[in-house]
C-alpha cells in the first residue's frame, strides 16, 4: 500500500511547529500504524533527516502512552482502539493521512508528536487513591463486595490514562479520566472513608491544571480506547455536589 503523510513537526516546546509532507510506499496491510511510522523513520534516518518523535511503549493498547491524533480524531478512525492498535488495512490505498499530537493546552508539546501529560498524574496525586498502609490490610474476603459493584468498579478502573478524552473534547475537559478514577473507588467499600476528600481534591486539581468542563458532547466516550462510559461523569458530578454541600455544612 502507498500513503501520503502530513505530520506535525516541532523541534521543542518553545519552537513553532508545522505540518510536513512525506510519502511512503510498499507498506503491507498487516503493518500497524506505528510500524508504518517506524518504517518512515528508518527512511528518514537513511536520508539523513531526523526521525519523527512519537511516543509508544506496550504497543498493545494498555499502557496508554500513544497520543496521536490521526485524520483529526484522537487515536484515529477505528474505535475503540489506541493508536497502536490501528492497522494499515483500515486505511485506503493512496490515502492522505494527517498525524498530529493530542491538542490540549494542559498537555504541552515536547517534540513533534510527543506531549507532556503530567497533569493527569497530578490529578491522581490530589486524591485518586485509598490510604491503605502496606501491611495493615484485613483478610481479603472479610468484606464481600457484590459482583455487580465489583464489575462496575472494574469498568471504571479500566481507564488507560492516555488523555484521548481531553483531546477529543471541544472544551479540553479531562472529566472522563477523572470521573473514572472517582467512580472506581466510590463503588467499593474500601473507597468510602476518603470519598468526599477524593472528589473535592481531584476536581479542584483538574481546574488548576486548566482543563475545561463537560458540556455533554460525548466525544470523550466515542474515542476512549477503554470504552469508559460518560455516565461516570454524571456520577462524579453527583459525588461532587454531595461532597461540596457536606463541606459547606462543615461535615
Amino acid at each position: 500500500m502507498k500513503f501520503k503523510l502530513k505530520i506535525w513537526r516541532q523541534d521543542s516546546a518553545k519552537s513553532k511547529g508545522g505540518m510536513k509532507r512525506y510519502e511512503i510506499d510498499q507498506v503491507s496491510e498487516n503493518t500497524s500504524f506505528l510500524e508504518m511510522l517506524d518504517i518512515l523513520n528508518e527512511q528518514l534516518v537513511n536520508s539523513g533527516e531526523e526521525p519523527v518523535a512519537f511516543d509508544s511503549d506496550c504497543r498493545e493498547g494498555i499502557c496508554g502512552t500513544c497520543s496521536l491524533t490521526i485524520n483529526g480524531e484522537a487515536h484515529g478512525p477505528s474505535h475503540p482502539a489506541a493508536a497502536c492498535q490501528l492497522y494499515m488495512r483500515q486505511f485506503k490505498d493512496g490515502e492522505t493521512i494527517t498525524v498530529e499530537p493530542f491538542r490540549v493546552r494542559s498537555f504541552p508539546i515536547v517534540k513533534d508528536l510527543v506531549i507532556d501529560r503530567s497533569a493527569l498524574d497530578r490529578i491522581v496525586q490530589a486524591g485518586g487513591f485509598v490510604s491503605a498502609r502496606t501491611g495493615s490490610a484485613p483478610e481479603a474476603n472479610s468484606t464481600p463486595i457484590p459482583k455487580h459493584n465489583a464489575d462496575l468498579a472494574m469498568e471504571a478502573a479500566a481507564c488507560i490514562g492516555c488523555g484521548a478524552c481531553a483531546a477529543a473534547c471541544p472544551n479540553a475537559s479531562a472529566m472522563l479520566f477523572t470521573s473514572a478514577k472517582i467512580s472506581h473507588l466510590a463503588f467499593l467499600p474500601q473507597g468510602q472513608a476518603e470519598r468526599s476528600r477524593r472528589v473535592l481534591g481531584m476536581v479542584r486539581q483538574m481546574d488548576v491544571e486548566g482543563f475545561g468542563n463537560c458540556t455533554n458532547t460525548y466525544e470523550c466516550e466515542a474515542v476512549c480506547p477503554a470504552e469508559i462510559s460518560a455516565s461516570f461523569i454524571a456520577k462524579m458530578n453527583r459525588e461532587y455536589a454531595v461532597a461540596s454541600l457536606r463541606e459547606r455544612m462543615g461535615e
Partner: peptide, 22 residues
Amino acid sequence: NLIIDQCVAQGVPFAREYGGLL
C-alpha cells in the same frame, strides 16, 4: 496471601463470585 489482602484494601477490583467473595 498478604499481597491479595493489600491489593483488595487498595481497591483493586478483582473478579468476584455472586456472593461477593473473591
